[in-house]
Amino acid sequence: MIDETQKPIYQRWWFILFLVFLGIGIILYSVIHTEKTETDSIDVADTIFYKKMEKEELKEKLTQSHKNPEVIAAEIIMKNFGTTYIEKENAVVSSRFESGILETIALEEKIISTKSTKHSFLYNTVEFMKVMKSQEEVTQATLVVQAPLTDRYGNVENGDVMIVLMSRGTLNKINFNNFKAENLSAVADSYWEHPALSSE
Score class of each variant (00 low, 15 high):
residue 4 E to N: 11
residue 5 T to G: 15
residue 6 Q to M: 10
residue 7 K to I: 03
residue 9 I to M: 12
residue 9 I to N: 07
residue 10 Y to A: 08
residue 11 Q to F: 12
residue 16 I to N: 09
residue 17 L to I: 10
residue 17 L to D: 09
residue 18 F to K: 05
residue 19 L to S: 07
residue 22 L to G: 14
residue 23 G to L: 12
residue 23 G to S: 13
residue 26 I to G: 11
residue 27 I to T: 09
residue 28 L to R: 08
residue 28 L to M: 10
residue 30 S to L: 11
residue 32 I to R: 15
residue 36 K to A: 12
residue 36 K to M: 08
residue 37 T to P: 00
residue 40 D to T: 02
residue 41 S to N: 13
residue 42 I to L: 15
residue 42 I to R: 14
residue 43 D to T: 13
residue 46 D to G: 13
residue 47 T to R: 14
residue 49 F to N: 12
residue 51 K to Q: 14
residue 54 E to H: 10
residue 55 K to Y: 10
residue 56 E to G: 11
residue 56 E to M: 15
residue 56 E to V: 04
residue 58 L to S: 00
residue 59 K to I: 04
residue 59 K to W: 01
residue 62 L to M: 12
residue 62 L to E: 01
residue 67 K to E: 06
residue 71 V to G: 02
residue 72 I to G: 00
residue 72 I to Q: 04
residue 73 A to Y: 00
residue 78 M to Y: 07
residue 79 K to Y: 09
residue 85 Y to F: 10
residue 86 I to S: 13
residue 86 I to F: 11
residue 87 E to S: 06
residue 88 K to V: 02
residue 88 K to D: 02
residue 89 E to A: 14
residue 91 A to L: 01
residue 94 S to F: 07
residue 94 S to P: 06
residue 97 F to G: 04
residue 97 F to S: 00
residue 98 E to V: 10
residue 101 I to N: 09
residue 101 I to P: 06
residue 101 I to C: 06
residue 104 T to P: 02
residue 107 L to N: 02
residue 107 L to K: 02
residue 108 E to W: 03
residue 109 E to S: 15
residue 111 I to S: 05
residue 111 I to V: 12
residue 111 I to R: 10
residue 112 I to Y: 14
residue 113 S to L: 09
residue 115 K to Y: 10
residue 115 K to G: 10
residue 118 K to N: 03
residue 119 H to K: 14
residue 122 L to N: 02
residue 122 L to H: 07
residue 123 Y to P: 04
residue 126 V to F: 08
residue 127 E to V: 01
residue 128 F to P: 02
residue 128 F to G: 05
residue 128 F to W: 05
residue 129 M to D: 05
residue 130 K to V: 00
residue 132 M to P: 00
residue 132 M to A: 06
residue 134 S to Y: 08
residue 135 Q to F: 08
residue 135 Q to D: 04
residue 138 V to A: 06
residue 138 V to S: 03
residue 139 T to Q: 14
residue 142 T to A: 02
residue 143 L to Y: 00
residue 143 L to E: 00
residue 144 V to N: 10
residue 148 P to T: 04
residue 150 T to Y: 02
residue 151 D to T: 02
residue 151 D to N: 15
residue 151 D to I: 05
residue 152 R to G: 15
residue 153 Y to E: 15
residue 155 N to H: 12
residue 157 E to H: 11
residue 158 N to T: 05
residue 159 G to D: 05
residue 161 V to H: 01
residue 161 V to A: 06
residue 163 I to S: 03
residue 167 S to C: 07
residue 167 S to P: 03
residue 172 N to W: 08
residue 173 K to I: 08
residue 174 I to L: 07
residue 179 F to G: 03
residue 182 E to Q: 12
residue 183 N to A: 10
residue 185 S to T: 03
residue 188 A to E: 03
residue 189 D to Q: 03
residue 190 S to N: 10
residue 190 S to A: 10
residue 195 P to D: 09
residue 199 S to I: 13
